[in-house]
């Protein structure tokens, strides 16, 4: 039988042609090492820069994440469906947890405003809740005993 299915239609050496060489992997690795070194150095940057530092750290983290996923995990050269499956899970996770953190008031001063609290009792109530309502005391009728 000479007919083949479309899914079999990868030619010989397709993956070998698309996968990077060892040299490329070494280059990616050294780029990752340099980025990690820069990340670590931010720990000693002045405290006043913390907002800029946080943004920079997130950007570097995403670059590292992308480099490992694209080159080391071969997403760059593999089938498109794999990229879709993985990034769908990732985007879903990020969306769900950003929403969850928002609901738990994490983005209110990064949660620092509620230091020492567990989050279950935030925001603090201005007035204490009234004591729980209790049933009225039962009416006790005195009986005189006479008929």
């Amino acid at each position: 039988m000479a007919a083949v299915t479309a899914s079999e239609s990868h030619g010989a050496g397709d993956h070998a042609d698309h996968h990077p060489s060892d040299l490329t992997y070494w280059k990616v690795f050294f780029a990752l090492v340099a980025l990690t070194a820069l990340e670590v150095s931010t720990y000693w940057w002045p405290e006043e820069w913390h907002k800029v530092t946080a943004v920079l750290l997130i950007v570097m983290m995403l670059i590292k994440f992308g480099a490992v996923a694209m080159y080391f995990m071969h997403l760059k050269s593999d089938a498109l469906i794999l990229r879709r499956v993985f990034f769908f899970g990732m985007v879903l996770a990020v969306a769900v947890y950003i929403a969850a953190l928002g609901a738990m008031v994490f983005f209110h001063d990064s949660g620092n405003a509620v230091q020492g609290r567990t989050g279950f009792d935030y925001p603090p109530r201005e007035k204490p809740l009234p004591p729980p309502a209790t049933d009225p005391p039962p009416i006790i009728r005195e009986t005189t005993g006479g008929h």
Binding site: V4, A6, S7, E8, H10, D14, H15
Partner: peptide
Amino acid sequence: FSEDSIGHTHLPTNTGV
């Protein structure tokens, strides 16, 4: 044909993976 030069055997799946 059925096995490329780095050893990937191409199976008859709908996704090609």
